[in-house]
Design a protein around this nucleic acid. Structure first.
Lengths: 252, 252
DNA sequence: CGGCGGCTTGAAGGACGTCAAGATTAGTGG
DNA sequence: CCACTAATCTTGACGTCCTTCAAGCCGCCG
């Protein structure tokens, strides 16, 4: 395939959102609206700020945390992308998920008290680090923070629905593209143009498909006019049709 | 296959645990150890008790809650078994999970504020119902309860790992059997003998395999001497070998 | 420029699904 | 207790979608 790049592609690289300031959280921190909406005062806001630490950049392939590390913090992706994965005793990797700006990682480590998976940067990646003991203490004083944490945790249950059902390769790839595009759109990025931060291998691993199958499906979707593929840049040409292809997986 | 029943099979039917009393929770309620371990007084215990309601029995096929019902409570299975599932617009069911005594359902409803799936009894089923608003209020006063809720929620993330990886039908079925047996064992039931409360259809649906494949795999595992199958009663004859077969999925 | 990893494309093979028929069980009412 | 029906389960034959294997291409970075 000839490498026809998109015009303005540069804006797709390493998406990152605003930095916030002393009295406003960066929107990725997932706690931005909590305090102000509930009328907490500046002291409370400051408490919340004190337990946030901006970390990064992590480079492609660097570990944010490793399986079996002791759990002490959850993270929000601020810019870049992270994959979470397991490695079995034979060294085979299993990708559990991808995490884009505005999304949390580490929530599944609270219970076992150790991270149950690796978290690896896929791009130049920045994160917000929340000390969990401090956050839990604050939550006990501020019901809105507690509620927010409950919701964050609840939202993460059943997120593996991408692999659900008796679905074909095209359905799964379509669902993935629609899902990713939607998540980018939620954070203010283009709803139809996106840059995949993961390799075909990682993507196939996540969707339980061979990398070759990913290639073939992307080509087929392009031949059918649903998408445009240029390396890792994807444009959704017919989002509605794609969504219809994927409706069994996305549950409308 | 000739129907060779197990001796003492009757004890496998409708597992149920103790009832608890005014000052002790039934062990299934998942809050049993919280208060006493942290030295809360009887008043606190009573608060916790007041928001628990024993409900049931539900008969095979009855709904505990339905998709899109407004969320107001989480449940612990006290006896019997529950499946959670989605139904798409064409009426096809998709089984998300099975819930045995001692396990919670409804945690994934906190965020959307509506139950995102159906919960259907597979047996004569009793549950403990926890009003969530009341529970959250109590959690704000009792850090141990809050912590316990965080852990319960966290533990539910990534429970769909049964479908993970690039695994054969035998591996998935083995993993399922080992997993179920372990969950029963955790609650004091036999670690090697169990009664499946779900049909081959539900099981296949959950594992993304045709019911016929489930049959064939169970027969193969029996022919190889790993298990003994009599209808829905299963005996694990070589738990170690089964676990080895399933190690890719169970992550040791 | 040269090497390497990631991506694409083709051909062949296998594991599971589908379809169909028969067997066994559970449930119901007489 | 038995008869009858419906549902579930089993077993076999065949087809299909995806994987595997192999080769070549492209882009990136030293």
């Amino acid at each position: 395939m000839s490498a026809t790049d998109f015009a303005g592609e540069r804006s797709l690289r390493v998406p990152i959102v605003d930095d916030g300031d002393e009295l406003r959280f960066c929107s990725t921190c997932a706690f931005g609206a909590v305090c102000l909406a509930d009328g907490y005062d500046k002291a409370a806001l400051k408490d919340l700020h004190c337990l946030v630490e901006h970390v990064g950049p992590f480079r492609n392939g660097e570990y944010v945390f490793r399986s079996r590390d002791r759990f002490d913090a959850i993270y929000a992706v601020r810019g870049g992308a992270v994959k979470t994965c397991l490695v079995d005793e034979e060294g085979r990797e299993q990708v559990l998920g991808f995490h884009l700006p505005g999304e949390m990682i580490g929530l599944n480590a609270i219970h076992p008290a150790h991270y149950p998976c690796d978290a690896i940067a896929l791009d130049s990646t920045w994160l917000c680090r929340f000390s969990f003991p401090a956050l839990a203490m604050l939550a006990a004083r501020m019901p809105a923070v507690q509620q927010h944490l409950f919701r964050l945790l609840s939202a993460d249950i059943g997120k593996a629905s991408m692999l659900a059902g008796d679905t074909s390769a095209s359905e799964r790839v379509s669902a993935f593209l629609v899902n990713i595009a939607g998540r980018f759109a939620n954070r203010g990025f283009s709803p139809t143009r996106l840059r995949l931060s993961m390799s075909r291998g990682d993507l196939g691993n996540y969707l339980r498909l061979a990398p070759e199958t990913i290639s073939r499906v992307l080509r087929k979707l392009q031949d059918e006019g649903f998408i445009r593929v240029a390396e890792r840049d994807i444009e959704l040409l017919k989002p509605v049709e794609l969504r219809r292809l994927a409706r069994c997986i996305l549950h409308e």
